[in-house]
C-alpha cells in the first residue's frame, strides 16, 4: 500500500513533464514532426508536456535518429545529465532499429536502446504527430506515476 504522499508525488509528476529533443544524426523528419506537435492542431502543451530542451531541467529525453559514431559518447553524457526520475522515448524507425541507414555500407552504431536504456519506442518513418502525441501521453505519465513504488523496490533490492 503506497502512502498518500507517494501517490500525490506520482500524480504531480505525471502532470508536469518537461521534454528534451535530441537529434542524434537523423534526417530531421522526426524532429519537425515533433515540432509540429506544438502547433494548435496537436498541442502537446494541453497535456502538461512542455518543450524545454535543457537536459538538466527535463524529465523525458525524446531521441530521434540512428546514433552516429560521433554522437555515441555525447548521448551517454547527455543521458547522465538528466535528473531522476527520467524516461527515454525513441521516436522513428531510425531510433528504434537504425532504420534505412542501418544496412550494409551505413555508418551508424545501431539503435538507441544499445546506447542508453529506452522506455518506449514509436516506429514509423516518420511517425505522424498524432502517433507521437498518443505515445507520449499514454506512456510517460504512467512511468512517472509508478516511479515511487518502483524506486522503493529498487532500494529494497539493494538493501
Amino acid at each position: 500500500m503506497r502512502s498518500l504522499l507517494e501517490r500525490l508525488k506520482g500524480f504531480v509528476r505525471s502532470r508536469s513533464i518537461h521534454v528534451t529533443v535530441v537529434n542524434t544524426g537523423g534526417c530531421n523528419g522526426c524532429d519537425i514532426e515533433i515540432l509540429a506537435c506544438y502547433t494548435y492542431r496537436y498541442d502537446l502543451e494541453q497535456y502538461g508536456i512542455y518543450y524545454h530542451n535543457n537536459p538538466r531541467k527535463s524529465d523525458v529525453l525524446i531521441v530521434t535518429g540512428p546514433v552516429t559514431y560521433q554522437w555515441r559518447e555525447k548521448l551517454k553524457r547527455l543521458y547522465r545529465k538528466v535528473p531522476e526520475p527520467k524516461a527515454v522515448v525513441a521516436v522513428g524507425a531510425c531510433a528504434c532499429s537504425g532504420g534505412i541507414f542501418n544496412q550494409n555500407g551505413g555508418r551508424v552504431c545501431g539503435p538507441v536502446r544499445e546506447v542508453i536504456p529506452v522506455d518506449a519506442e514509436v516506429p514509423g518513418c516518420p511517425p505522424r504527430p498524432e502517433e507521437i502525441v498518443s505515445a507520449i501521453v499514454e506512456v510517460v505519465p504512467r512511468l512517472f506515476r509508478s516511479w515511487e513504488s518502483r524506486r522503493g523496490e529498487a532500494d529494497g533490492a539493494e538493501a
Binding site: 540512428p66 552516429t68 541507414f101 555508418r107
Partner: peptide, 13 residues
C-alpha cells in the same frame, strides 16, 4: 560539423 554522418552515398552504391 560532423555529427550527422551516416554514409548514405555508400549505402546507395
Amino acid at each position: 560539423m560532423g555529427y550527422c554522418h551516416r554514409g548514405i552515398e555508400k549505402i546507395m552504391e
